[in-house]
Each structure stands twice: as C-alpha cells, then as structure tokens.
Simulated scan of single mutants.
Amino acid sequence: MDIIRSWREQKVMLKWRYPILQDLDFVFEEGEREKMYSKLATKLNKTRSELEVLFADLQLH
C-alpha cells in the first residue's frame, strides 16, 4: 500500500467517520502499534483485515 496521507490526516478522517474514536485511541508507544490496531479493531467491532481495508481506503479519498 502506498501511503499518501499523513498519520495525522488519517486520524482526523477516522475520527470524523467514527465519532466514537478519541485521540487516546491512537496513542501507541514505539513497537506497540499492533496493540493500538487491536484496540481500534475492538472499539470499531472490526477484524484486523477489515481495519487494514479501512486504512487502505483512507489513502484513496
């Protein structure tokens, strides 16, 4: 996947699309990105693969 949008833009778009999300949902320590993805997947009731599709979709819009 080619990254077109910055992480900040992606966070804003996700928060707009899913108002349930907060800034704290995107916080992660170095090497703990998977933990953040897991937290997002749980909060959005999505699988890891659905979350990956969602992030890929953000790159297109």
Rank of each mutant, 00 (worst) to 15 (best):
K46W: 02
I4Q: 14
S6H: 02
L21S: 08
H61S: 10
W7L: 15
F28H: 09
E34F: 01
Y37F: 14
N45I: 01
V12E: 10
F26C: 08
R48N: 03
I4Y: 12
K39P: 00
L58P: 00
L21P: 04
R5E: 12
F55V: 11
W7I: 14
F28L: 01
D23H: 07
Y37G: 03
E9D: 12
M1V: 06
L54P: 04
R5L: 13
S38N: 11
T42M: 12
E32P: 01
T42F: 06
F26I: 01
R17P: 01
F28M: 04
R5P: 00
L51A: 09
L40D: 10
E29F: 05
I3Q: 15
W16L: 11
M36K: 10
L51I: 07
Q22N: 12
E52K: 05
L40N: 08
F26S: 05
M1D: 11
D57C: 08
K46I: 09
Q10G: 00
Y37V: 00
V27P: 01
T42C: 00
I20Y: 01
A56F: 00
M13E: 08
R5M: 07
D25I: 02
L40A: 05
D23N: 06
L14P: 05
K39L: 06
L14A: 03
L14S: 07
H61C: 12
E29A: 10
L24E: 14
F28V: 03
E9L: 03
Q22F: 07
E50Y: 09
A41E: 10
I20Q: 15
A56C: 11
H61T: 05
D2N: 15
L54H: 00
Y37D: 10
K11C: 10
D23V: 08
L60G: 02
M13P: 01
Q59I: 10
L14R: 06
D2V: 13
W16K: 09
M36E: 11
R5S: 03
D2C: 13
L58I: 09
I4M: 07
E52N: 00
L24V: 13
Y18I: 01
L14C: 04
E52C: 00
R48M: 02
F28R: 04
L54S: 07
D2M: 11
D25R: 01
L51G: 08
V27K: 10
L21C: 07
Q10N: 11
Q22L: 13
M36N: 09
V27F: 14
Q10S: 06
Y18R: 09
A41C: 04
Q22W: 05
I20D: 12
E9K: 12
F55M: 12
A56R: 09
E50W: 01
K39D: 02
Q22A: 13
M13T: 02
L58Y: 02
G31E: 05
E50R: 10
Q22E: 15
K11W: 06
E30G: 08
